[in-house]
Structures are given as C-alpha cells and as structure tokens.
Design a protein around this nucleic acid. Sequence first.
RNA 1: CGGGGCGUAGCGCAGCCCGGUAGCGUACCAGUAUGGGGUACUGGUGGUCGCUGGUUCAAAUCCAGUCGCCCCGACCA
Length: 490
Amino acid sequence: MAKVITPRNEDYSQWYNDLVYQSGLADQSAVRGCMVIKPHGFALWENMKDVLDRMFKETGHVNAYFPLFVPKSLFEAEEKNAEGFAKECAIVTHYRLKNDPERKGKLIVDPEAKLEEELVVRPTSEAIIWNTYRDWIQSYRDLPILINQWANVVRWEMRTRPFLRTAEFLWQEGHTAHSSSEEAIEEALKMHEVYTRFAEDYMAMPVIKGAKTANERFAGAEETYTIEAMMQDGKALQAGTSHYLGQNFAKAFQVKFLNDQNREEFVYATSWGVSTRLIGALVMTHSDDDGLVLPPKLAPIQLVIVPIPKPSSEIDLVAEKILKDLKSKGIRVVYDRDEKNRPGFKFAEYELKGVPLRIGIGSRDLEKGVAELARRDSKEKVSVPLESLVDEVLKLLIEIQSGLFDKARKLRVEKTKFLDQWSDFEELMKEEGGFVYAHWDGNSETEELIKEKTKATIRCIPFDPDLKEKGQCILTGKESKGRVLFAKAY
RNA sequence: CGGGGCGUAGCGCAGCCCGGUAGCGUACCAGUAUGGGGUACUGGUGGUCGCUGGUUCAAAUCCAGUCGCCCCGACCA
C-alpha cells in the first residue's frame, strides 16, 4: 500500500491534492504558485486541446500567436480591463543580470539595465491583440477576424491550487472582430455553445449555461457568458467563459472600419477562453477514492491489457492480437508486459491513473477462451469470450462515457434546490451546500450582501426559459425577473 | 499583507523538551522464493539535520538572525 489517497468524505480538498500528485497529473515546482504538468496530465490536456482546436476550426477560426509581453502603455489603454487585472500582474522591469561584486558566483539585477517602459506579462491578450488588429482593419471587408491562440498566461494569485488556480496556466483565447454588434454577440454565444458541447459530450460534465452578473463579469466586457459545473462537493466551478466586448477595446485602441455606407465605425469584439483548469474540473467531477476516473473520449489510455500473473508466450500471442484489433478501431491501448510489477500493483496503478477499461489475461482464462474485462467507473468485472472482446470493449467505452455524464447530472439534480425563504438559503449554504435557484432583485449590493452572509455567489443568470418566472428577491423581497443560480464557487 | 504550522535520505515522518557516533516506514539496488488485487524474506545504497552566526569540550537538539514552503483569510478563471 504505497500510495494512499485521503478519502473524499474526510477532506475533499486534500483528496484532490493527493489525487493530482499521486496519479501523475502534476508535480510541485520550485516556483511559487506554479506547477509542473507531468506527462499524464499533459496528455490529457493535449486530448482536450485537439478536440477544442478541431471545434474552433470547424466554426471558422484560425490559430495565431501574439507576444507574451505587453508594454504597460498598451495594457492600460482599456481602463476597466487594466484595472481588473492590475493587482495580479507580473512585470518585467529589467533585461540583464550581472555578477554580484559582493558575493562571488552570484548574480544581481543590473541597475543599469532598466527598461524604459515596463512590460506586463500577459494575464490575457486583449491589449496586444487589439493594438495589432488596428493595423489589420480598414474596411468591413476585412471583417470578421476570427483568431484563436494557444498560450500561457500569468496571473499572480494569492492562493493557488493545482490546475484550479495557478500563477501560470495554459489556455486558449479566442479574439474576434466584427462589423456589427449582432454578429459579435452571435459569435460569443456560438463559442459558449462550443464550450457547452465540449464539456458535456467529451468531458461528460453537465453544465449550466448562463450570463454573469455585472459583479462577476470579465473586466472590459459588456456581457460574459459562462458554463458552470458542479463538483462532487457541491461547489460550482466556472469551466469556460465567452465575452461580448462591445466596442470597448476598439475605442481604447482606435480600431475603426468603414462600413458599406462608407461611414466610419468602431469594431465590435468578442473573446473567449478555457484553460488547464478544465483538468481540475474533470478530476473533481468523476474521480473517486481509488484515483482518477476519466471519460473514455479524453483518457490518454483507454484500455490496458495486464498479463496474469506475468507475460508468457501464450498470453503474448493473445494480447498482441487484441492490441492490434483494438488499435485498428482507433482505441488508445497499451499492453503492460512489465515484469517488475505484479498484477495487483498494476491494477491499482491504472485505476489511480483513471484508465477506463482493463483486460486481464491469465492461463485459466486462456483455457476457457475468455479474458477478464474490468471497468474503472463501476469496478465491475466480467468474463468475455475472446471472439466478442473487441465489440464488448467498443460498447463499454460508449456506455462508460454516457454513464459518467448521467451520474454527474444525477448528483447535480440531487444537490440543486429551489428556495424562496432566506432562512432556508442560509441554512443550506451553511450545511450541505450545492446549487440554489433563487430570486434576486438584480442589484449588485444585494449580491454582495448575500456573499458576505453565506459565501455563496451568483454563478450565473441561467438561460433556461423555465427560470424566467417573476418573483420576489430571496433577501430583500423586492421584485425579481427570474431565478438565478447561487453556489459557493472554486 | 494578517493568523497558524513546518523545514532531518527521493517521499512521509520520529529524534529536539532534558546537548554526547542520525533513526523508522516507504522508495531504490542485489538475491531467493512467490505469483488471478498494491508479495515475503535476506542483504545493501543513500542525509554538510533549510541557511548564517552565537553559546558549549561537544549542537539536529539551546539562543539570535535569515531564507523557503504549506494551511486558513483578503484576491481570483
């Protein structure tokens, strides 16, 4: 029993940390607030990235790359955005080190090498991109511009947690330019829908779609659309956002175009992004006390074949055949004929890593012409005749994918309440937590007050038309236009 | 930045109060047996005890300073 993971019911956040480090997703680094993404974690990210990148391209976007550094003068151009990020920016002030005359072999920052203008390490790229777009846009014929970039960004967070919040993280940021407000809003909503499809169809993570309140909105945006997922502890996690930026950045950077009436107009913008945070979301949505549980569509390894108790020429022969057949069906499969570890160890190890399916083959199986097929999500094991193994695997992978989604949705339904009494709301947030649909009067002050009292925030104003009923604010009793989603959040 | 805790082998820790040859578990290496859910036994490798200074015949242990990390809070995707 080398690796012990703290059980979820004992300490949920410790469980999460144990899991991330022991399953090989990430490692701590020598840099405060930054982590190393290990091969297993990065393989997961690559799979996510591949799917998303394909979806972006299918919706007409192309990739490009903009600089890591943003001159301070550009950064501050859009005031609200700059203000929003100011408190968490890393800044480059010098460009050279030199030998320390006091201490041999040590280096100091060369005071002579001060930059004339400081460079902000991008917390997001709107500034540098809009400063560039200005040069690219003259006429409505240059629009729309539909660009995405895969990049790292830095936000100097006070408290960090692996994947969920680190000082540096990987993400994609889409930045589009349009000739009308309608088209830009349509774009923002379209990408919001892409994120929804990705979360639900690939991550098997059900999400609530909606818009952010003014308090929670992206700094510099007119409207922020979000997808909110529920983690197993009932807390909400913002999994992706898409922003309609109006003409805010166009005005800040003087990005104008001549419309088809030959009149000058400011460009309309959107931006949208998801990050490596999704890995944290994936972990907290499906995994259990034995390790990761990964949806087959994103799992780096979908199936592992374990010889029992160790490889033999007979087992090799059968295993290689299964390997070949499954690979030809596009399944990501490995045959673990490592003799250093015993089967029990391997079982535990692959469960820890979240491999959805495992095939065990021993001499007893071979005598009967079967193999043992075990699934990670339910831990069920069945004996399957070798002839039908491939079909069974394909069937199970689909079943596991949809099973994970259903299970997550079921949990969310159980932990979602419709409340109208303030005392109920307060009590629920103090005790079990979860999602609450309640009426809100639309005032930021009310939202702040609720946050102070319960630590719950408005995660979104849901799109769901059924929630648009009139009512009275749960705190103030004032008129409300519809229910909003409250929860404590990551 | 406020409150709390911790730096001793790759990892997890004991030893410190009461100074006297640096220990346990795990991992790692070698071997033997074992082999259908994290094998067992035997032998072995590995540490300037975070750093700097002080007290002392003698410091992981006492004192002072310093650096770093973790947890809780404010901030945030």
